[in-house]
Amino acid sequence: MIEIENVRKSFGALEVLKGVSMTVEKGEVVTVIGGSGSGKSTLLTCINGLEAIQGGKITVDGTVVHDPRTDLNKLRQKIGIVFQQFNAFPHLTVLENVTLAPRKVLGMSREAADEIAVKQLSHVGLADKLSVYPSRLSGGQQQRMAIARALAMSPDYMLFDEVTSALDPQLVGEVLDTLRLLASEGMTMICVTHEMRFAREVSDRVAFFREGLIHEIGTPAQIFEAPEKPETAAFLKVAH
């Protein structure tokens, strides 16, 4: 369970998160929607401790993320994150991209890591690209590789930060299909996204972010069909 309590985060004088609270249960799929600069992506990088926070508390399975005694490297092993820019490691083949962390962080043997990597890469439809370098892949393929790379660490949670935003429109579908597959398998996911139809379809709950706060949160039916707040309705009108 991920518990976010009254989290505040600033970059210099700019306060990006102004007291965000939210709880994500095991097995739940929560999508986060909202305008650019509303703090959605920042929240994800706070959850795995890539960013420090200035107030509040984030707890993952009882571990306080920003406690200085918390072993973040250990914590991150169970929280996979995929970014908007695919961040493929260009000097490694697709297989090596995926096996690097299992081998160097978890200390797996090459054989064991290869086995897991092949399984995850098959899962995202890249079984025929194992020995290819990322520069030879399309954006959608690179992003699916990034997903497999995160999954190879067997995380309990997956965070997706606008993973289709940097893709050509015709490549968005293949990545969303991968996310749908994960959701259907019961992976706990928080997806920051601009894909409203996707949000509506896979989410257990949808959170609408506005000006550093969760403005409204509820089931897709509530948010998309009967939003309580006028700002939510206004955003959805434009976003559709």
């Binding site: 991150r76 820019q85 690097l100 962390a101 660490m153």
Partner: peptide, 17 residues
Amino acid sequence: PATQTRAARSLGMGPIR
């Protein structure tokens, strides 16, 4: 890009690794 390090760190690697 700094995002390379971020990606590596988010996979549980320490700064030196």
